[in-house]
Design a protein around this nucleic acid. Structure first.
Lengths: 253, 253
DNA sequence: CACGTCGATGCCCGTTCATGCCTGTTTGAG
DNA sequence: CTCAAACAGGCATGAACGGGCATCGACGTG
């Protein structure tokens, strides 16, 4: 049996039974578990299956994105520390722009109940989290909602940010460096991020150290657009020094 | 059972029953409480559930009614029937405006996974629910978010609806009658509803029979702005007749 | 036909993941 | 205010994972 045949069959089994597991597939097709894993990985990349630990589930069967429901990764811990440190940078009252991103979301979730803020965001998860916060006047920025990030983008979002002026913007980036500035994989999202940080008097960037020196497709600003970078101790003091010389204050939480 | 499957099921149970608790989930799935806690934490981080001591409640509930035990569940039953009937009125493809409201939210949650639609909504819970639907191009309408209904209102929302034209709008009302039309308690919300139904070629009203002959503070349209009313069998045939004579088709689910 | 290439598969081994158990701390109901 | 239940964090364990390397057979070229 050829690999594509086997994968086809695996897909059928998965759709049929709602799930498959590596060990029984290996037994079934008389191959090793490694081979099955490679098959599942291929099907996962093709978007036909969703890989889970121990097996796979047909795509679309789960009505939420598991990559949003990130498990206990090691990064989660550092993101939490960054989020807590960021909290200290929030004004006691005033207006705040919150970018999309898991670290920002975590910070939003930790905003104390007695805070009194006006918050503007284009992130759906963050808005959902803050909607019932009694002290927060929430404004959602409209637009087309990207599936992967659940953030609003395009014309409505750009125009909305063009019409406001906030005290602080808390933004995230997939990559940042002194030379290439702030980057993210998606162009539409980059445009909104740029609009968001332009609309604020003070810009705070939350990014764990793994993002340093990364560059992605779309650039949305220079590092000196950022007034304060909050990151973790994974960033070397030398790198921190480079960034500070470029004019951005650095906090290593 | 894989962790994501279990989490999916927990989410379903939570949305279904309004709440879940750690101990019964642990029993139900034959795992320890620690594992359930980890699941709930993951779902909480993803913004799908709100963690509380002892369990969790679904994020973005429209109203936290004190006891949704019995009185709610009977109403829920009828709302579900209305929601299902409304589903049949959706175009196979095209653009759809969804108003805020629990019945509309139920309908949105029941949109089949193979649907291919463009959906515009100013309701945060509905947007959150549809954001990961693979076949739906979702647009969120921006604006100030009202705490009680978690819907966007005011200038941004009004302008957005003024700029679009949809095939169908599915709207809800707190009260409806032939004489006083469609009413709701909040003025700002009424303005958005009016803008939403003006932006659609066809207007479908979802309202259970308890809303009939009710009038609230803010009026956002006449009954003959509505092309089709979907309600439950609690509406008497005579009342239905009155409404149909006024030019609105009535479906009693 | 001989030889080199390449893709598929299997094997090995260090790493990660999911889960359970334990312990000290926090929470909230009475 | 008290106390049992719930929680968080640390640790242990076995299964699952994934990258690197070896093998094997199919294929193509000279």
């Amino acid at each position: 049996m050829y690999a594509p045949e086997r994968q086809q069959e695996i897909l059928r089994l998965a759709r049929d039974g709602g799930r498959v597991d590596v060990v029984s597939l290996a037994e079934e097709f008389q191959v090793t578990a490694e081979t099955i894993r490679r098959d599942l990985k291929a099907l996962d990349r093709a978007g036909l299956l969703r890989r889970v630990h121990g097996g796979a589930i047909p795509a679309g069967r789960l009505d939420f994105e598991p990559d949003l429901a990130e498990r206990e990764s090691t990064a989660a811990d550092e993101k939490d520390r960054i989020a807590r440190a960021a909290l200290a940078e929030l004004p006691a009252e005033g207006t705040l722009i919150l970018d999309a991103g898991s670290t920002v979301a975590r910070m939003a979730a930790a905003i104390p109940p007695d805070a009194s803020l006006t918050v503007v965001t284009h992130s759906l998860p963050i808005a959902a989290r803050l909607a019932d916060h009694p002290g927060i006047q929430l404004h959602i920025v409209g637009g087309r909602v990207r599936h992967r990030t659940r953030a609003a983008v395009d014309a409505w979002a750009l125009r909305a940010y063009g019409e406001i002026r906030a005290d602080v913007a808390v933004v995230a980036a997939n990559g940042f460096s002194v030379e290439h500035g702030l980057t993210t994989p998606d162009l539409a999202e980059a445009a909104v991020k740029r609009a968001a940080l332009t609309a604020a008097r003070r810009v705070v960037l939350l990014a764990d150290s793994s993002k340093y020196a990364q560059e992605h497709f779309a650039r949305f600003g220079a590092l000196d657009d950022v007034d304060l970078l909050i990151t973790d101790t994974g960033l070397t003091p030398e790198d921190a020094g480079d960034i500070e010389r470029a004019g951005t204050e650095v906090v290593r939480a």
